[in-house]
Simulated assay, not measured.
Amino acid sequence: MNEVAPANAGSTQADDGQTNAARAHAGRAISANIGDVLVSCRGLRKSFGDREVMKSIDFDMRAGDITVIIGRSGSGKSTLLRAIAGLTDPDDGEMTFDGEVVFSEQKRTPAWKQVDSHVGMIFQSYTLWPHMDVLKNLTLAPRKRLGMSESESLERAKKALAEVGMSDHIRSKPVQLSGGERQRVAIARALMMQPKLLLCDEITSALDPPVAAEVLDVLRRLKEEEGIAVALVTHDMAFASKAADRVVFFHEGEIAVNATPDDAFNHTEDPELKKFVEAVRF
């Protein structure tokens, strides 16, 4: 792959064609305003073999909210994120995104192709290409998937890296970065597709607490400054109590508690949530 050239006033006709292609394939605009329901799941079920990991899950997320999802390993948290992201299909149930039915009757609907670019997912393992520098890691998907021009992808990469505090590392290779820096790059890469929803699966579990706090602060700022909704699977109760709009507690494949942080942590009557919080706080 050739290096991306700096943007300049003399854009070629080919570049303009790529930009038009990017617009054509970017999907429809999202109409949900801050506070509107962005994602709605009803009756989601998923089994792996004989083990049912999601049992008739009902779940809503509002545009611009941070939802922290907690619970023991294997309780269904990550499976829900992967279902919303389109990485796994439920066995049953229905999902809507911005009012469009995107999963129904055990399959994705045509509407999913119109909204999937608005959903970004970030993993614990970063999933960065080790042989590419940061810039190429960020620009590969928009150029291949959306037909974005070199100049437009470069400008978008600069903006995304600035938003996560990584502007000085645009030419670095992943091996030259710390774990926290790699996770910031992974967030920036997700931002390249201009998502309305970021799904984050244990993205700070391998980081030292101060570094994890910095990464989580990036997500909080994206919510406040860009209006991006965030669903985050984490064991960081401090972040959940301070930054979350909702706390969702999974227990044995079901949502046992869906409440404000104050209600979830200070006023819950759910015995399993009480035990879980006490176990991870200390």
Rank of each mutant, 00 (worst) to 15 (best):
E202M: 09
K77D: 12
D15S: 14
E155P: 02
E94S: 11
G49K: 05
A5E: 14
E150F: 00
M148P: 01
T139H: 08
S47Y: 03
A259T: 03
A63C: 13
W129S: 13
G93D: 09
E52Y: 04
L207K: 05
R182I: 03
F59D: 05
D116P: 01
A29C: 01
G71W: 08
A111G: 10
W129V: 14
F276M: 01
A111W: 05
A229T: 14
H251T: 10
Q124V: 13
V248C: 13
F249N: 11
L44I: 06
S241D: 15
A14F: 10
N137L: 11
L273D: 02
G35H: 07
S56Y: 05
P90S: 06
A141N: 08
F282K: 12
P209T: 09
G76F: 12
K173Y: 15
V215P: 08
R23T: 06
S40C: 07
M54C: 15
S11M: 13
V230C: 13
F103P: 02
S151N: 03
K46R: 15
F249M: 11
H251F: 13
S205M: 04
N2W: 00
A243E: 14
A29L: 10
Q13D: 13
A162W: 00
L177S: 06
A256K: 10
E278Y: 01
G43M: 07
R143F: 04
H118E: 08
S125M: 06
L135I: 11
P210C: 10
T12L: 03
E202K: 08
V248H: 10
A244M: 06
F123M: 06
K274V: 07
V211G: 10
G10D: 15
A26H: 11
G180T: 08
V102Q: 05
K159Q: 13
M192H: 01
A29T: 14
P130V: 07
G165S: 11
Y126G: 02
M132I: 10
Q183T: 07
V247C: 07
F276L: 02
G74S: 12
L273S: 01
N258D: 15
A213G: 12
F276E: 01
M121P: 02
K107Q: 15
L146P: 03
R221I: 11
Q114L: 11
I228N: 09
D217P: 05
L80A: 05
